[in-house]
Write a protein that binds this DNA or RNA. Sequence first.
DNA 1: ACCCCACCTGAATCTGATA
DNA 2: TTATCAGATTCAGGTGGGG
Lengths: 377, 377
Amino acid sequence: MSGAKSMSMELPLDQILRGECVETMRTLPSGSVDCVFADPPYNLQLRGELRRPDDSLVDGVDDDWDKFSDLQEYDRFTRAWLTEARRVLHKDGTIWVIGSYHNIFRIGAILQELGFWILNDIVWRKSNPMPNFRGRRFTNAHETLIWAARSEDSRYRFNYQAMKALNDDVQMRSDWYLPLCTGNERLRNEHGLKLHPTQKPESLLHRVLLASTTVDDVVLDPFTGTGTTPAMARRLRRRFIGIERHPDYVEAAMSRVARETPLADDAVVTTQDKREAPRVPFGSLVELGLLPVGTVLCDKKQRVNATVSPDGTLVSGTKRGSIHKLGAQLTNAPSCNGWTFWHFERNGEFLPLDVLRQESLDLAKTAAATAKAAAAG
Amino acid sequence: MSGAKSMSMELPLDQILRGECVETMRTLPSGSVDCVFADPPYNLQLRGELRRPDDSLVDGVDDDWDKFSDLQEYDRFTRAWLTEARRVLHKDGTIWVIGSYHNIFRIGAILQELGFWILNDIVWRKSNPMPNFRGRRFTNAHETLIWAARSEDSRYRFNYQAMKALNDDVQMRSDWYLPLCTGNERLRNEHGLKLHPTQKPESLLHRVLLASTTVDDVVLDPFTGTGTTPAMARRLRRRFIGIERHPDYVEAAMSRVARETPLADDAVVTTQDKREAPRVPFGSLVELGLLPVGTVLCDKKQRVNATVSPDGTLVSGTKRGSIHKLGAQLTNAPSCNGWTFWHFERNGEFLPLDVLRQESLDLAKTAAATAKAAAAG
DNA sequence: ACCCCACCTGAATCTGATA
DNA sequence: TTATCAGATTCAGGTGGGG
């Protein structure tokens, strides 16, 4: 199955090598690892300081390792480490690289140019992202992982059934909903400050390793940091090779790994992903055309009415607001459930908006069932 | 506001030009459009035909326009049309490009190389994606849109409040959950077969246009296809320029546009950003007598207070300054929004100055309406 | 033990008009 | 071009103290 381990060369297994990533990879034999997980610098290019609306300062990434003079230098760096990673990878191996819009397009383009074969782009949707404090863009609520085989004809590993099981017995999709690394999981120094600015959550690596490797596979992480990859590899009984430049991180990561207990033989697919509540923003009913812009809504006794705007707000005279806010305002109530307060006309009778909400959920459910049936054949 | 339309050149507005996209863009003047939405060919590398588990054939993308001999050719094509798009775009304009992992990394990298400034990458999560029939990858359940300004210093449009309203009054995130284009919305030929393999849903364009353009803005779609962009532009009272190579699509799109009814003046209005509201100098509230000289203001928790001067400054002890300056000074904050910081007493409760600002705007609006009625009567 | 609330934090390319 | 200043802007979740 996994070819790399059959080579049985003298690999520095279950170690974190201190050193530059390209140089250190050069010391590893070709075709010797089954999987690479890489979390390279993102080249964020942050400029001034950023403050929250309450004037508190955002603790941004200002480390030297994320500073590049320009795109060309970042591309050279990227091409260099991806070239080595490809050499070290077994012919049937796969690579994962995570990034944001700052760097992921560079990475993806270079991966393709080097002959990697992209299998999926995976979206890590953050359940608790940092908001956009200035209101100038959409909340940057996700990061992207690229999953690629070493080449077009690699016979790569994908544990389809394990992923399906992990996802309530429907195919695992390319969008993953996972929280950030916070709380106890986040490594901290003696002052309680985060040890590393970009520590990844264990749930992410758990899914990555479970999807694309098997027991005893060798996983290489060229940017190990605080060692999430080694820790999850040990827990899931994979072998790891870490590479990390900073001695403090090497030490922190190794003691973290030492605290991990490998799972027993029979323990495998256990973790469940956090299910999302099927929230329906009122605006989406408008976008979907279930409720045309300009529709006039009224309360049950038709004492007040309001018109639907393109952005999902309601307008009544000079007043504008969400279905809840405007309902409260027009009735002088402290609060109001707009879903039950506002009614629309259908076949001569007035129905609450809640009917439409339910219908939109049913639509989604039917579509999902159809897709599943098609998949089942 | 939107710079492009003020140029009033002879643009082929509200038309779909039949022709090759680069050539046709060359006929348009520089800086003449406010927004570009592009759904270019995806360079799908489907090797041979794809069959479902029941051996039925998947009607994939295999039209002539999607055949590119290799990555280099696709890059050349991409660079060519993006270069023209950038020339045609107003300096403060933005571009949207949608793609999948097959092409989006080429597009993103070239966008950056041409000097576009990426604002967000947006994930369109499909509520009803096609399942992965072979079980060899994750279900490809999303597509990616890149939203970018023409350059780093573009003062681009983002209708923050409208997006927030559309999402139940929390910031719109970078992941959008929308269904595929199916059912009645999908254009079909006389045999009931879909007219175009990749028709985009109207809900997607509704959100795109509502986020990044305003009424009468000019939107260019260089790969118009069945005309979802023109149709939504017409509905939302934006102007459009379409470009499409295939005469059948041009015809289908134009008759589709003709079936759209533009929203009425008052129906197309969305929640306004405060930045766009008319500016009210604090001093004018004093002049208008809405806030008498000598009134004592305090912060919400009544920890500091200050007195209103005739010139619209506040005085607190020996300190004097604008509502913003003094608020910042008294709280040792780098900045302060005096409108929300300072409160005045009315009927026993403390209200922020912002209430008075709104009231002065309402007064002005009422006065204008009265004047208009008098003139008409 | 439990609830409530105040406070803290996260890979962030985070203002714009006017003088 | 640069300096100045008005004023717009946050969500989910964890932690910890007090009642």
